[in-house]
Design a protein around this nucleic acid. Structure first.
Length: 595
DNA sequence: GCCGTTTTCGGCCCGACTGTTTTCAGTCG
């Protein structure tokens, strides 16, 4: 289990906050702890499998932190952390994540008024004591109170799909202005992170038109508050009502707009796409070469001559780097490969040849199989699609029994006859029972073109054995949404990804990247882990209605963030090649593995 | 705290906006 990594990441992140709070002298110590927290949190393997030496070999982990990890593994505690914690006003430190509350501010208040808790602080803000302090004033106090008020609403991250819809709406609105030249969505949306905090929009216009564009921006539909407004930059808080994934939950979002000159576009796009760690890394590389990178370009010291800025390729090239797709700009190895010109060619949406999980009116889908087939044929250039309605155990979704499935096979044959090609594949999303057996007989599964096996019940147990047993069934092509998580709603169930990946590889079973916005399951990290270990993946939309077929772009985005190439994804292959892959599985009768 | 093809000490990315200042500190991304 990776939970020890999570616990350690949490501790180091807290230690980072402690040191941030404690002041300028510890600033870089704080950064080091925050960096370590991120590294350990992202680590695929359990830290307890590492020796101290191996840990120190990881960039960003040195002797000090490795020793603390060892101490935690041995004793379940880190004495330095306990010591710091006992001395810190914890309640106040939690305020550092609130807008307007930095370490200096909190410390100044705490020092001057001997305040220990958040509640005392709020009182002091309201009764005017803080406004009287040196360096404070009524505006600052007002902003701090606003920060507190908005903190809960804005803190939650929203699913990528919702963020895409929101930002596209704003971009379209801004595009109505003839003054706007280039415009693009940057930030974590451009990197296609699975959840999004703020929305970042970048545009170019002529200098004289900036004010007009900014004025238009702060007046777009749904603006609740203007957080900042300058010559080249503005931030608004927007209230979004139409968030399908969030089920109409109203969530305020901060939207940042930045305006640059047309010739600065490439540098600005790099800068505002990030990630922060990626930017820091490329700036270090620039420094080593006597160069400086900012949002305006790459500059050669000492004359400060701009040597690149127009487009991203040029900016990266001027630093000796190959261009990198936004999805992998997370400082997780991409910069090192770009230096060697070895960035892989990632999978693209147009590589996808078919969709292999969807539901019809036979169970919980909205449309008949024939309608879906016609829709998909018309709107997506696929060579095949598989109908995978639920098996009978999934009662909430109206799962169907074997008799109905046989009838469905006949219906699909008739539809294909009408279409004049074998476009629609027969299939099922068969439920994996608690004991790992399947909710359909092998005899029936053998007659189907495509079998997805998924868990929909009894989440509250370790499901590793259950999923491995499903992999061992010779008729199972792919494990559907392998971790079962629902973003913001349901935690993933317990499963050892390492063991599942091993079993998937040994049995020739694929794992699914389920592209439903609230699933995105496998996520990018596990997808990368699986494909690096030779497991093939399938990207499916799990569509229940027409519009959901567009989710394929989300699945492809995860695969790209997972560094997947076309060859790693099975449904980039022709149907014949896909079947070749599985003939091996059915003929080899894989040995039963043990956990 | 981490790190090192000049360094085991002395660096550690860079600029916009706000509010409180009379020239800049704090916060943010």
């Amino acid at each position: 289990m990776r939970s020890i990594n999570k616990r350690l990441a949490r501790i180091f992140s807290d230690m980072g906050a402690f040191y941030t709070y404690s002041g300028e002298a510890d600033r870089f110590r704080a950064i080091a702890y925050e960096k370590a927290a991120r590294i350990i949190g992202d680590l695929e393997e359990d830290v307890s499998n590492f020796t101290e030496k191996e840990m120190e070999a990881i960039e960003g982990i040195g002797h000090g932190i490795a020793t603390k990890i060892e101490e935690y593994i041995a004793t379940g505690k880190i004495s330095k952390y306990e010591e710091l914690k006992s001395k810190m006003p914890l309640d106040l430190i939690s305020l550092l994540s609130v807008k307007g509350f930095g370490p200096k501010t909190v410390k100044a208040i705490q020092g001057a008024l001997k305040i220990k808790t958040r509640a005392q602080l709020v009182r002091a803000l309201k009764d005017g004591r803080i406004a009287k302090l040196k360096g404070f004033g009524s505006k600052k106090v007002e902003n701090m109170l606003k920060g507190l008020e908005l903190h809960d609403a804005v803190e939650k991250r929203i699913p990528l799909w919702d963020a895409l819809q929101m930002s596209e709406r704003i971009v379209k609105d801004l595009q109505k202005l003839p003054e706007v030249e280039k415009i693009d969505i940057a930030g974590s949306i451009r990197r296609r992170k699975e959840t999004i905090g703020d929305l970042d929009i970048l545009l170019t216009c002529r200098q004289k038109d900036r004010q007009k564009v900014i004025d238009h921006f702060i007046g777009v539909e749904g603006v609740k508050r203007v957080l900042a407004k300058g010559d080249t930059k503005a931030s608004i808080l927007i209230k979004e009502t139409d968030q399908p994934t969030a089920k109409k939950r109203m969530i305020d979002r901060q939207v940042d707009l930045r305006i640059v000159e047309p010739e600065e576009w490439g540098a600005a796009l790099v800068y505002f796409t990030g990630s922060k760690q990626h930017n820091v890394h490329i700036r270090r590389i620039a420094q080593d070469q006597g160069l400086k990178v900012n949002e305006y370009g790459v500059f050669k010291e000492p004359q400060n001559k701009c040597i690149a800025s127009q487009n991203e390729e040029e900016v990266y090239q001027s630093l000796g780097l190959q261009w990198m797709p936004p999805e992998i700009r997370e400082d997780s190895g991409e910069v090192e490969l770009a230096l060697k010109n070895k960035i892989p060619e990632l999978i693209k949406l147009k590589d996808i040849k078919g969709d292999l999980q969807m539901h019809s009116t036979w169970t919980d889908g909205t449309h008949s199989i024939e309608d879906i087939a016609n829709y998909v044929e018309k709107n997506h250039k696929y060579d095949y699609m598989a109908i995978t309605d639920h098996s009978q155990a999934v009662r909430v979704a109206g799962g169907i029994g074997e008799k109905d499935l046989l009838k469905q096979i006949n219906e699909i044959r008739n539809i294909n006859r009408k279409l004049g090609r074998q476009f629609v594949k027969t299939g099922v999303e068969v439920d994996i029972n608690v004991d790992g057996s399947l909710d359909c007989s092998d005899e029936l599964l053998a007659q189907l073109d495509w079998v997805v096996a998924s868990i929909h019940t009894n989440f509250n147990r370790n499901n590793t054995d259950r999923l491995i047993k499903a992999c061992e069934n010779p008729y199972v092509h792919v494990i559907g949404h392998p971790t079962g998580r629902l973003l913001g709603t349901r935690e993933r169930y317990e499963v050892s990804m390492e063991h599942l990946i091993k079993a998937a590889r040994a049995t020739g079973t694929a794992l699914e990247i389920n592209a439903q916005p609230q699933r995105m399951d496998l996520d990018d990290r596990y997808a990368r882990m699986a494909s690096e270990r030779g497991v093939k993946l399938v990207i499916s939309t799990d569509s229940h209605s027409y519009d959901q077929f567009d989710f394929m772009q989300l699945g492809v985005a995860i695969a790209r963030r997972a560094w997947c190439k076309k060859k790693d994804i099975l449904n980039t292959r022709s149907w014949a090649d896909l079947m070749k892959f599985y003939r091996k599985k059915r003929s080899s009768k894989p040995a039963i593995s043990t956990v």
